[in-house]
Design a protein around this nucleic acid. Structure first.
Lengths: 344, 344
DNA sequence: CGCAACTATGTATGCGCATACATAAAAACC
DNA sequence: GGTTTTTATGTATGCGCATACATAGTTGCG
């Protein structure tokens, strides 16, 4: 018995701040279900009752317990989002439209960083699944076997983003990193650059872009080009890697493809510091089309990926799946565009 | 009766993918509680039983339902984080250490963007409280009255960050925006700048910084200085605002204080485009000490705020409160530092 | 050997809500 | 005016787990 052995009537002391629908109902003179209905579908409740319930809610400061609601209804109204890093604007800028699209439909975001390690991702996925999200967003398409198993077992909609695969766990919204690298090589050829080099960050996708760039460049020009790898894509790393190419790799000009705009900005700064003219003596191509690409001097030629669309489309695909629809395609390639500015 | 009227034995069809502790226990030959104990405190279960349970979990792919656990234990192991925008590196870089600190203690982050509108924040706070977080992080100290009421009513630890107040809802970890603005004015005086101007983003905290800068500048130099406001702190806005100052506000040199490093970068770019020498003809001071401040040319003089410490300290303060400790101080000022580089 | 203390497990219960089903009263219909 | 339909509400139930309490079996100790 929760209430009945509390003769004082108010039944309040049992837990300091636990206003429930039961308590609201008692004040409004109705039962718990009626309160529940008033909140989920006011048309099912008479206007007078509605008013009394509203007053009771205001008086008590009642906030419904979504945990209990989720437990019984099997709908948590939460969507998990797993990104490698929230401080990386690339991921954050996909997350923002994703999140806002879902918020407008009443969903909340359970966010975690996974780093770039598949095992860490698996642990995070497990923690998230224990919260019973209604859907889940993953960054990338390479996951631990256990991750795939858990996600399939959970039988919830899953969207993998920021990459392409023929075999999605469920849905995939992204683009081909290899194709973007090749596009830069093809641009280099068309623009007449016969020498080249690459600067990559250490993560697998960056290396895939630069690897594809280098091998396509070789196919088209017949010559091998140096690719150097920084552990992390910072401006400082971009400067250091250009120095490395020039001072120790025998690179002496041509087109430098970078795995991110930030690295490319470092290259521009180092070139300026050395008095190397861009694009005359050195051409630079970035990746990402962040704001800085347009504003640095010279403007940065780069690959634009529609991150906003990716976030939005991923959210819509999940919402459709949650609604039981079978989407026409499991895999959506949002593509990319090479934006030519002054740097190459 | 959940199981007993299912004569087929396995008792599985009732809900496609709902492996429960009950089901795991049936396979391992123990009861539901024993499974619960095995997971929460293995020392309470015999090694043989533990092994059987582990096998059963592996076979079924069981993932505990944290919603149910949270409902009964009244501990959700979730912490809410409310930030104005996740794409703003300022907030994201506080969030990252905050999140990682909490993750190491088993907490997950429920994240939402609030924008800069107090009413929107109130709605988000309500949605979060319905999920019964064990604590909550807010950005800023100005909230709707309803927000304060809800948070006090929820009786959970609350930390307000990225600002200072004498009257925190619960805890406050931040710094004084006004003091940072005054510090720039005092630096200007000491460095010998007698003329000045300000460029602010539209949000209240930015305006507070620039307002304090302008009034302190006036106190020290006796002259009024123009302050222009951009709705949003972008590079393009920084360029446009410098143009505005020069072309329409009669500003002709001296020190320009900007409410963010990004705006300051725009100023540097516009100055370069106009052939104005920095710092000789125009001195520039930013705010935030983002990576670009160190790498742009000339290096940007700016205010550094230890965002990493703020995130970490806020997390630790919340954890202490959750653990029932009474912290020595409710309000922690992490301060700021003026970093002098070449731009001023 | 007898009783206390401990170990390993089980039974009972309810967290707060949504859902299925039941019911009373009012409205609609021929 | 009686029957059907609709409206407004209530009763009963259980989601999956943690917690309090109960109960065998086991060990310790004088």
């Amino acid at each position: 018995m929760t209430q009945s052995d509390d003769p004082s009537g108010a039944g309040r002391k049992r837990n300091q701040r636990g206003v429930t629908m039961e308590a609201v109902g008692r004040i409004a003179g109705v039962s718990q279900v009626t309160v529940s209905r008033a909140l989920s579908d006011p048309s099912k409740v008479s206007p007078q009752t509605m008013a009394r319930i509203r007053d009771a809610i205001a008086v008590t400061g009642f906030v419904p317990n979504a945990l209990a609601g989720a437990l019984v209804s099997r709908k948590s109204m939460m969507v998990s989002a797993l990104v490698p890093s929230i401080t990386n604007i690339i991921y954050a800028s996909m997350l923002a439209p994703f999140s806002s699209e879902l918020k407008s439909r009443g969903y909340q975001i359970l966010l975690s960083e996974t780093g770039l390690d598949p095992d860490e991702e698996a642990a995070v996925v497990e923690a998230h699944l224990s919260r019973r999200p209604d859907a889940i967003w993953l960054t990338g398409v390479h996951h631990a076997a256990r991750t795939r198993r858990m996600l399939i077992g959970a039988s919830i909609p899953v969207v993998e983003t920021w990459d392409m695969t023929e075999t999605p766990i469920d849905l995939c919204v992204g683009f081909s990193h290899a194709a973007s690298g090749r596009a830069v090589a093809e641009f280099a050829r068309e623009a007449g650059y016969t020498k080249g080099a690459g600067i990559s960050a250490g993560d697998e996708r960056a290396q895939r872009r630069l690897g594809a760039f280098a091998s396509r460049f070789r196919e088209l020009s017949g010559c091998n080009i140096p690719v150097v790898t920084a552990s992390y894509g910072s401006i400082a790393a971009g400067r250091a890697m250009l120095a490395e190419l020039l001072d120790r790799r025998g690179f002496s000009g041509g087109l430098v493809a970078c795995s991110s705009d930030v690295l490319a900005q470092g290259v521009l700064i180092e070139a300026a510091a050395r008095g190397i003219a861009v694009p005359t003596d050195l051409a630079v191509v970035g990746f990402g089309d962040q704001e800085l690409a347009e504003t640095v001097e010279p403007g940065l030629t780069t690959i634009r990926v529609n991150r906003d669309a990716m976030g939005r489309i991923a959210a819509q695909a999940l919402l459709a799946r949650i609604g039981g629809e079978t989407p026409p395609r499991d895999v959506i390639d949002v593509g990319f565009t090479l934006i030519r500015r002054a740097s190459a």
